[in-house]
Design a binder for these strands. Structure first.
Length: 430
DNA sequence: TCTGGGGTCCTAGGACCC
DNA sequence: TCTGGGGTCCTAGGACCC
């Protein structure tokens, strides 16, 4: 039987999560903002129709939102992550072979389903996800991941299709590929689009018919792969096991500018604390911690400064206290006392790019860290923070969440309906 | 007259994704 | 006043080795 991959994704996923818990949002425009309530990163169809663009800064559209009755939310990643897990649980009922690609997208292997039954299964899948989780979705099917993504795009943009599209049939596929702009292809971004347009490419079919060799010259092997995938030749396998992650970062813009060293050190300590939590969840460790902080490019006419440095540890660790020490050392090494006009820092982060499994990582001969003590201590902290909420136990260096003046803003955040007992939604019957 | 050749590893930067 | 965060992959070029 022929290979068939389905891509299913949540429509305006973050907005849909908010709608699940507030029926009054059903027919009104809704947007969800990025960290710090900075930009619109999810918009419902109604919001898109008002001209609100992806990534548009909120301060530019605040008036529009007020005038048009757009409901605006801070992002609530705890809620979205949990809703994502619920949708994936439903997907697994339909195919045991699922690749979770992002928080709102998964690939399903439907190769075992007869071609003429695939659309029906896709409709059933959508209906079940909607009934069991409340999330509306679209499904695209094709012989390769790239074609499944394209089918999903078609399903989403043509309402008459009812949220499903199958490009398995070669003739139907050829007809569709002539009708879709090449910029919609997965992997074609701004730079590649400019190159392709210069080569006279307009539709997806034009790209499919190009000679792969010159494309490889212009767009590397990535471009060549896309052509083969569009022709139905699979180059991208389904990744059923999540790959071990290679890097990990915690970076945040401040809700207000920072000028003094003590506050900056507190911020990087808080980021390092979060970094430790993330590493421990995967049993990973690192022996290089990079620290950066910089002023904002939007502060025109002010003194600018951008700093980045790497601190090396004697051996890999995920101990929060060791990570904090490294991060603070990074600030100490690079801090410069301000002159008459101080630098007003807007963002800081801690970054690691060389993660390894802690258990099997080599030990240092000199400067060995005390893993026998660190492990149980970190485990105890993590347990407290799971049971009593994140931030219940933090190192003193990182400061208490409530007292961090620079903390990220989430002024319009909804409750964590599904993961905190104290924040369960309530329903009233009259 | 007359430059070695072939290999690995690392890093920075570009591009793209959600 | 107010402009996100966190990833992956690929390539070119330099350093280094024998």
């Amino acid at each position: 039987m022929s290979r068939a991959i389905a891509l299913i994704d949540g429509n305006s996923f973050y907005c849909s999560c908010e709608r699940v818990f507030d029926p009054k949002l059903a027919a009104v425009p809704v947007i969800v903002l990025s960290n710090n309530d900075g930009c619109a990163i999810a918009r419902t169809a109604e919001a898109k129709a008002l001209g609100i663009r992806m990534g548009e800064p909120y301060f530019k559209i605040r008036d529009l939102c007020r005038r048009q009755g757009v409901r605006v939310f801070s992002s609530n990643y705890t809620l979205y992550g949990d809703m994502s897990a619920r949708t994936n649980a439903v997907y697994r009922d339909f195919s045991p072979r699922v690749e979770i690609y992002s928080i709102d997208e998964s690939f399903l292997d439907l190769s075992d389903v007869r071609e003429r039954e695939r659309l029906e299964l896709a409709r059933d899948l959508r209906a079940t996800v909607r009934a069991w989780t409340g999330i509306p979705t679209c499904v695209g099917i094709g012989p390769t991941k790239t074609l499944a993504k394209l089918a999903n795009h078609i399903a989403k943009s043509i309402p008459e299709l009812g949220g499903v599209c199958d490009l398995s049939d070669e003739d139907e596929r050829a007809a569709w590929l002539c009708r879709v702009h090449v910029g919609e292809v997965w992997g074609i971004g701004r730079a590649s689009l400019a190159k392709l347009e210069a080569m006279g490419v307009d539709t997806v079919a034009d790209l499919r018919d190009l000679d792969p060799r010159p494309v490889r010259k212009a767009m590397t092997v990535v471009g060549e792969r896309i052509i083969h995938e569009l022709r139905g030749l699979a180059c991208l396998p389904l990744e059923l096991l999540p790959a071990q992650r290679k890097g990990c970062a915690v970076t945040r813009s401040f809700s207000k500018r920072i000028e003094d060293r003590a506050t900056l050190e507190q911020a990087v300590a808080a980021h390092a604390t979060r970094l430790g939590e993330k590493l421990r969840r995967g049993g990973l460790g690192t022996n290089h911690v990079s620290v950066f902080y910089h002023t904002s490019e939007h502060d025109r006419g002010e003194p600018m400064r951008s700093v980045s440095t790497t601190v090396t540890l004697p051996e890999a660790t995920n101990d929060t206290l060791a990570l904090i020490k490294a991060a603070r050392l990074g600030v100490e090494k690079t801090w410069r006392e301000p002159g008459e006009r101080p630098w007003r820092y807007s963002k800081a982060g801690v970054v690691t790019t060389d993660l390894m499994l802690l258990e099997t990582s080599p030990r240092a001969l000199i400067g060995q860290l005390d893993r026998e003590r660190s492990g149980p201590l970190m485990a105890a902290i993590d347990t407290c923070n799971v049971r009593f909420g994140r931030g219940s136990v933090v190192p003193a260096r990182a400061g208490l969440e409530e007292k961090r003046a620079w903390s990220t803003k989430f002024e319009m955040r909804t409750p964590r309906y599904t993961t905190q007992l104290a924040e369960l939604p309530t329903a009233q019957a009259y």
